[in-house]
Design a protein around this nucleic acid. Structure first.
Lengths: 347, 347
DNA sequence: TTGTAAGCGTTATCAC
DNA sequence: GTGATAACGCTTACAA
């Protein structure tokens, strides 16, 4: 018989069991597992809990302990296939450590970002994992976090001054470009992704580095920007493949863009990899199911998420300040890249 | 100068502004926007808030108001491409109404499901949106929700007795099958998805209904189960296409399975749609980018998410009990389904 | 071994 | 107009 309307509280349980609230609290709290207690009392309490279907109010608990066991996870857009594994990685280690995760989609909009940041602080999450960019003018905002002892770790290189997990996009992209060059390609175009993205900037840089290292930079490295969608990849590839002497290989900013390029090749009657080689980024599940299978750079997205969460937990544990974890990438060679038409250098 | 260690509280602000905590609360609380107050006082308070970087503690607020402005979102696995748009739909309307969302991945594991349910109740979320199955023995568990005034709406037909948003999978699948039959196919196999999924059961049923209605059910309708992955689709399709006289069309449980079937067709040198027609379910972004483009049933996933959240908001508003919203599906005819080899009935 | 009571950071009800 | 103060549902000294 709960008092009044509303949820059953610790007082209802105490009353039902004929003990004090302190006693009920003791049977529930792991912190007081060591204090001695008559088995009979414990049983009475547990019976009452069961009968009433009592669930302790974690808000009250959190208020007292200054710890909510919640973390915020800020991503640009969960609909972007890149993020779900990352989110899953964060959630898995979070939940296995008793933390719940509050998901925030920002669309890289500074207004939304600061709005969510405020909400997260007000609800006193213990920490925040931020992935993806759009944080141009936001850094100052993170100053408040310190005042509220809110941890933060970034996935990517957009928020310096905080622990972060990253990949070496420059090196990864360079390796992919070198693979193409090794195959004999001389005219390669880097395709797509927003020019403002640090990820894209790094990948474009790695591409340029590879060309330069091979002395292929007398012709200005061809880099075309767009966004991260199939649509963008399709449109760009259509344009790029139009000239009479188009590039023989396309290094795409991600797999979605690569998939768009596949469609463009099909629609212009070009065979992959015979007429044009295509390389992607991310190794999303589709990569092994398109035909030809897609050669792409595997990014350990799930692991980046779980590593980020672990870094956050380390912060909670007081284990040091800024840390930086660089995760390995790997070029997965499949069927979409081969020697250029003619079989060798043609420049 | 916050008292002690820890976050700045309303008392710090009151002290800094030289007013009582009640006054500070009044400038912050929308509920008391109407009470008169000297502009000078308000300014003093606002200045103090700014200077201290004060963020009210929503836990305390929630404790008092019996309302957390949080909802739980329970999905099988965010990595499954079907869910991100749904999640986004929920999050968009949630955040635009001031609610935050706590994401829970269950892997359809009853233990995880009940675990998350408990956590969500303990943190006193105002409501829960559940999508996806695995709830076989869980329904009794939802009884507790009532005791804590926790709203619930289901996406799908697995949790009767609660408001829900659904699609008519039977009708949708039947329409897809009829499309194939209309094209002239007589030997069609329904491919994949877990036999335990109500979604799959419904789609298989619609498939059988279509065959029966066309008098094609003298040959036992061919239905093969697996799971929702490309891998499963690939494996099943390889088997299905092996016989000397294989089906001329594959109705796949979802686009991922269909993509697996694409790969199987390619690897066995069968042309789509010339040798075999393929139809999918979900209309995921890839559908329009594979070649040939994939004929598939579009499911308004995003809208289902936003509708579910709206239903939850309606519950909060006391707007009636169980409601049921059925969202429309649509067969998107693209390039993967055409007349069977020979051009017409061959049975 | 168990109970009493202070206090976590707010809001709401009274007074003044 | 503004200030005390009693809740909200818990945990944790400190008593008993």
């Amino acid at each position: 018989m709960p008092r009044s309307k509303g949820a059953v509280s610790i007082r209802d349980v105490a009353a039902a069991a004929g003990v004090s609230v302190a006693t009920v609290s003791r049977v529930l709290s792991p912190a007081t597992a060591d204090v001695p207690m008559r088995k009979e009392t414990r049983d009475k309490v547990e019976r009452a809990i069961d009968e009433l279907g009592y669930r302790p109010n974690d808000l009250a608990r959190a208020l007292l302990q200054h710890r909510t066991a919640a973390i915020g996870l800020v991503v640009p857009d969960i609909s972007n296939p890149y993020y779900p594994p990352l989110v899953r990685g964060v959630e898995d280690v979070a939940s296995s450590h008793g933390y719940r995760v509050v998901l925030c989609n920002t669309d890289r909009d500074p207004a939304k970002i600061t709005g969510y940041l405020d909400t997260l602080i007000k609800t006193r999450v213990d920490g925040i994992v931020v992935a993806g960019g759009g944080w141009a003018d936001v850094p100052e905002r993170t100053a408040v976090l310190g005042r509220y002892r809110t941890g933060l770790v970034a996935v990517g290189r957009h928020l310096t001054a905080h622990p972060s997990v990253r990949i070496d996009n420059v090196a990864a992209s360079r390796a992919a470009a070198e693979h193409l060059i090794g195959l004999g390609h001389r005219r390669i175009t880097f395709v797509g992704g927003p020019a403002t993205s640090t990820t894209v900037q790094d990948r474009a840089q790695g591409f340029r580095d590879a060309l330069k290292a091979s002395g292929l930079d007398r012709l200005a490295p061809a880099v075309r920007y767009g966004d991260f969608t199939e649509e963008s990849g399709y449109a760009l590839a259509r344009e790029i493949l139009r000239p009479s002497r188009p590039p023989t290989a396309l290094l795409c900013a991600n797999d979605r863009v690569a998939l768009g390029a596949y469609a463009a090749a099909a629609d212009t009657a070009r065979r992959i990899p015979d007429d044009v080689s295509i390389v992607g980024f991310d190794d999303t599940p589709i990569a092994r199911y398109v035909r030809p299978t897609l050669t792409t750079v595997a990014i350990p997205t799930y692991e980046m998420g779980s590593a980020a969460m672990r870094l956050l937990l380390a912060q909670f544990g007081g284990d040091g300040g800024p840390a930086l974890e660089t995760m390995p990438t790997r070029l997965v060679v499949r069927g979409s890249a081969a020697a250029p038409p003619g079989g060798g250098p043609d420049a």
